[in-house]
């Protein structure tokens, strides 16, 4: 039962969704959307609650055992609780101006700062990886540099041909490569989903 039931649920719901997408029957689509798709929403949000409980459990543990940097755990729990309480307290929930203000000054700015790290990491990764060790590496290096120059105003100021070269590389070479990889990924993901649907692969069941 423990192994069969999840398989049966996967197969049946998968078959229903495939049927719903293949045949344009509005009544069927409405029933599927109202019950099956909404149930996915409910299960996802239940999972969020479980995840938050796990997070709190780990950090309460760290605080109670005074593990290294336990003060940051207080900060995490405190800020999470503060945002949660504000969301419940105010009429408009997460759209309330106060909530929005806190959101703008903390998570938004922190997210921006973390994203900005990518700039520095690209520099160090490119410096380390872009070496002309072989013909392929040289092609990678040259195309990377040309696209970098063509995409910015300084490249355009140096020579008006750089943006055109960039457009050529992006429209022809890049598009061809992306399409090839995307094709393989799409067909591969079809097989992956089919394996899960038919119960051949049961990774999600911890088997």
């Amino acid at each position: 039962m423990r192994r069969t039931l999840p398989l049966v649920i996967t197969m049946v719901t998968g078959a229903i969704m495939v049927f719903r997408d293949l045949f344009n029957i509005p009544e069927v689509a409405e029933i599927v959307n109202r019950y099956l798709v909404m149930s996915y929403t409910l299960s996802t949000q239940t999972a969020v609650a479980i995840g938050i409980m796990n997070l709190f459990k780990i950090h309460f543990n760290r605080i109670s055992r005074k593990r290294s940097d336990w003060q940051f755990s207080i900060l995490l729990i405190g800020s999470a609780c503060m945002m949660l309480i504000m969301g419940f307290l105010f009429d408009l929930g997460h759209n309330a101006p106060v909530y929005n203000w806190w959101y703008q000054i903390l998570p938004v700015q922190l997210g921006n700062a973390t994203f900005a790290l990518i700039c520095f990491y690209i520099a160090s990764a490119a410096y380390r990886a872009f070496r002309m060790r072989s013909i392929e590496a040289t092609c990678l290096l040259l195309s990377g540099c040309l696209v970098m120059l063509g995409g910015v105003s300084i490249g355009n100021a140096m020579w008006s041909g750089f943006p055109e070269i960039k457009v050529f590389i992006m429209n022809n070479l890049n598009t061809a490569a992306v399409r090839g990889v995307t094709l393989g990924i799409t067909l591969g993901s079809l097989a992956q989903y089919a394996r899960n649907l038919f119960g051949i692969e049961r990774g999600y069941m911890a088997e």
């Binding site: 690209i122 490119a126 410096y127 872009f130 070496r131 970098m148 120059l149 105003s153 300084i154 490249g155």
Partner: peptide, 24 residues
């Protein structure tokens, strides 16, 4: 912000060139 992006790209390209000169 485009100017900042331009300068960033130039520095990356300069370091790539430096790295390759060093490599060869």
């Amino acid at each position: 912000n485009s100017d900042a992006q331009s300068f960033g790209h130039m520095i990356i390209i300069i370091f790539i060139i430096v790295g390759n000169i060093g490599y060869f």
